[in-house]
């Protein structure tokens, strides 16, 4: 049996006379695989299974098989489509803002100036703050009675009296996106900066000799060379944004008047408040598929152009 065949067909060689070192590797891996199977693979498959049942925890006696009804029920509900629209808006705004701000910061940190290292270290602070602490901090900042934002704007004379920031349904989602962007920018900036550092200096020197100005060097050398880093940032931030829950939970609980009810919040309400595990699982699978589809779309389209 060749190494190549071993690599391609795991189960086949287990049943035959396979090599000692390969067998030992499987032996050592098997406990981890068993644990992963129990805590990851099984729950994923089981949640798919229960999405075909009308499983409500408070009605344990009656759990009928309903096939795809949970999925149909979800997609026929206007509340779901409203949540999809809000999730899309939140994701687009967040990804765009994170990518642009991170790019600008990376460009700044790529320059040589005094205090660059200190600035780079300070930049990481928002990223290092735990999600819950970040949410609570923004809750204090936005509070309508004693919030720092109101205090600051009032002292600057920008507002005449305290405003209900999170209480305004037209502003709520954008304010949550702002808190999200603040947290996600540092990692994105570092990823872009690392990619930027890898661009050969010769390219810039050659372009300068050819008469290219700064903007032309940025558009024709920097930006195309940043493609791997930007792709990573866009895909990562989009996947985190589309599933955003922590900030919604801490800041608004989906309100006011459902103005911040995104898909992840709807899944939480359906599963853990209404205890409707069947429809909650169906919603989760729809969100998972949407996340995969979005990542695929970004890689296939944006990835080609950048």
């Amino acid at each position: 049996m060749t190494e190549d065949r071993i690599g391609r067909s795991g189960f086949w060689f287990l049943a035959s006379g396979f090599r000692y070192d390969t067998r030992t590797a499987w032996l050592f891996l098997s406990p981890v695989m068993a644990v992963l199977g129990a805590v990851t693979v099984f729950p994923i498959l089981y949640s798919l299974y229960i999405s075909f049942f009308s499983l409500k925890l408070t009605r344990p006696q009656r759990v009928p098989f309903v096939g795809l009804d949970n999925y149909l029920q979800v997609v026929q509900d206007d509340v779901f489509w409203d949540a999809v629209a809000r999730t899309a808006l939140f994701t687009v705004v967040s990804v765009t803002a994170v990518a642009l701000i991170a790019l600008l910061i990376a460009l700044l940190l790529d320059q040589s100036f005094r205090g660059r290292r200190l600035l780079g270290a300070l930049l990481l602070v928002p990223w290092a703050i735990p999600s819950v602490a970040n949410g609570l901090m923004w809750k204090w900042i936005y509070d309508s009675h004693y919030g720092a934002l109101n205090g600051l704007l009032l002292q600057l004379g920008a507002i005449a009296h305290y405003l209900p920031w999170l209480g305004d349904p037209h502003k709520t989602l954008l304010l949550i996106a702002n808190a999200f962007v603040w947290k996600e920018v540092p990692l994105a900036a570092i990823l872009i900066l690392v990619t930027m550092k890898a661009i050969p200096a010769d390219l810039y020197r050659a372009a300068t000799v050819d008469g290219a100005n700064k903007l032309q060097r940025f558009l024709h050398i920097t930006l195309p060379s940043l493609r791997p880093g930007l792709m990573l940032v866009v895909v990562y931030v989009a996947m985190v944004a589309i599933r955003q829950f922590d900030l919604i939970f801490l800041l608004t609980e989906g309100g006011p008047a459902q103005a911040s009810q995104v898909m992840a919040w709807q899944i939480y309400v359906e599963t853990f408040r209404n205890l409707s595990f069947g429809t909650g699982a169906a919603l989760s699978y729809i969100l998972a598929l949407a996340t995969f589809a979005l990542a695929y779309f970004i890689i296939r389209t944006l990835g080609q152009r950048l």
């Binding site: 509070d143 309508s144 009675h145 305290y162 405003l163 209900p164 209480g167 608004t252 309100g255």
Partner: peptide, 21 residues
Amino acid sequence: VSPACVETGELAGLKAFGSGQ
């Protein structure tokens, strides 16, 4: 009544009332 009432929970309301507002 403040338009911020939709983001004011019971505990926040208690604190606000207790502050004499």
